[in-house]
Design a protein around this nucleic acid. Sequence first.
DNA 1: GTGATTGATGAGAGCGCTCTCACGCCCGGC
DNA 2: GCCGGGCGTGAGAGCGCTCTCATCAATCAC
Lengths: 340, 340
Amino acid sequence: MGTRSTRPPQPTLEMVAADAGVSRATVSRVVNGSPKVRPEVVESVNAAIDRLNYVPNRAARSLASHQTQSVALVVPEDMTKFFGDPYFAAVVQGITNRLDESDYTLNLLVASSDPRHKTMRYLRSGNVDGALVISHHTGDDFVANLESTMPVVFGGRPTNHSGENNYFVDVDNIAGAISGVQHLIDLGRRRIGTITGPVDMPAGIDRLTGFHQALSQAGLEVAAIEHGDFTAAGAAAATRRLLANTPDIDALFVASDLMAVGTMGVLAEQGRMVPGDIAVVSFDDSPAATSGPISLTTVSQPSKEMGFTMADLLLRLLADDESVPHHNIMPTRLILRDSA
Amino acid sequence: MGTRSTRPPQPTLEMVAADAGVSRATVSRVVNGSPKVRPEVVESVNAAIDRLNYVPNRAARSLASHQTQSVALVVPEDMTKFFGDPYFAAVVQGITNRLDESDYTLNLLVASSDPRHKTMRYLRSGNVDGALVISHHTGDDFVANLESTMPVVFGGRPTNHSGENNYFVDVDNIAGAISGVQHLIDLGRRRIGTITGPVDMPAGIDRLTGFHQALSQAGLEVAAIEHGDFTAAGAAAATRRLLANTPDIDALFVASDLMAVGTMGVLAEQGRMVPGDIAVVSFDDSPAATSGPISLTTVSQPSKEMGFTMADLLLRLLADDESVPHHNIMPTRLILRDSA
DNA sequence: GTGATTGATGAGAGCGCTCTCACGCCCGGC
DNA sequence: GCCGGGCGTGAGAGCGCTCTCATCAATCAC
């Protein structure tokens, strides 16, 4: 036990009860805000709590009540990707905003490369009452069987076909992409290419689908497609390939702001003027959209609200709310700036 | 209890024991890898565990053993700042790398704005065995009394004077800054300014100190100082102020890569060539250093190793290792690229 | 005044695990 | 053959809390 044993022992419910001259049960009631305790008793118990600096032991509480009052945020994603993308920051922010209103705390699990096994064990050991999952690649079914254990809300439509009855919050990526590409078309651009997101992620797939739909509706051909990976570096490489293969494009739809940053760098490097030579529309409306020299016209998705909604749904699920909607699709909005 | 109650109950130690035809104690021994169990018994218990798909209940284990097998990463920082900075990504990566080798799991607490109170409660409720704290502002003493409750390792020298006997891992920011500024001087630059980090953070203070020391050693005057906040946007604003007040500088020492990104943007916007007109050296050597059009000459700090070391120290502390050094200062290295 | 009712409190049985201790077995020594 | 010792195992007492149920006093109706 070591270091722990040399530290002053935490006061227990029992000690507070003794100090206040009441029973354990009464202290428990006070701690949990039960209405059926006489005000003067509440007061004396609270005084004892302050006096002893008492904090309830979570393990004991959790063991007895079968609840942990905490939820997990599972990110089956590479650590650097997770941290690098402001989109995640916004989502997490939204989540914590909602959670801060409740008594639940967040457990962040970046379950990237290594031992997903370990992550699953952690989740299944009853550490959390429910889980939030974002950035769900196709094939990441390791999260799937989680749903049999606890309520789960996905951020972004999950790709496993396993069930229509899972809960998720997503933005309308297809409609968003269409609005972005349509803007390019309205601008008179005709040789429109795209840097896609990963095609094993719904967000990547849907945005590409929207790109195709917008073009075919306008009777235009796809000028060029290169696949990116939602990172700036990956997009830079993709842009180089695209420019090498199809030098004559006049517009680019890039599937995320962060990727657009990489794209803009390559464009500048190769002397292409934006939006003069090539108009650029991206997706997300994250801080990255306005951090560069040319501010990006981008399809805004309500990331923070998404996070908030995810947390809200989960909390309602945990409270046995029967009316929680399974699918929540949030709208996007085109933000006009300098790049297109 | 709600949703939980409708889900299949988790198997318990007791059930495994019954299934395997042994006692609870024996199953416990097997689960915890005790050597004093007959191999054939181990095998039959493991078979039972697999059969029932048993996972130990953490609350119960924690309650009985007074250990949680998890540690907290406390970040008294704004969420967006935390996610935006690749430095943190690297540190967290290092931490998880070390933790993955152990049985401990990480609990991330971004204890920014709101209820630090809530964070403290969480920590003090016995949720974790120890804590890692990074980005510790001056005045953030809310973490200070944590140390009386559990082992704590700081990333970056803590500013509270409260004790010399706390544990921390830091880089030699002063020496690093000196090496960066010295490089500028060696390049023949004489009008050298700086964009500092927050002066309420040791990292900000120390890098500024190094800046001063290098200049005074060379007998040079400080051309200009503007304060940044370790964000790209803040640095951009600071750079504008600096350029407005002191247009004739020929070199800039920027206290972080991320800030340098903001600075480079403003420099480009105002037509200053880098490194021709103004040479730039920054600090961190994060991915941000090479993401822009001009790669940054930067003082490399071993962020990932810092994280790894922090976790390692904490784990040793938890294992009652008496020989854990209190202060761990890691060296920096100047990386020469295009900006200076 | 009696019995029924309400409301605050306490007693006590777990929650699922760990850990100490005692027990029974088999071995070797004399 | 007896005893001491080791080793593997089981019994059982908690860990700090929640929650049901019983208790007891005060209130009310008649």
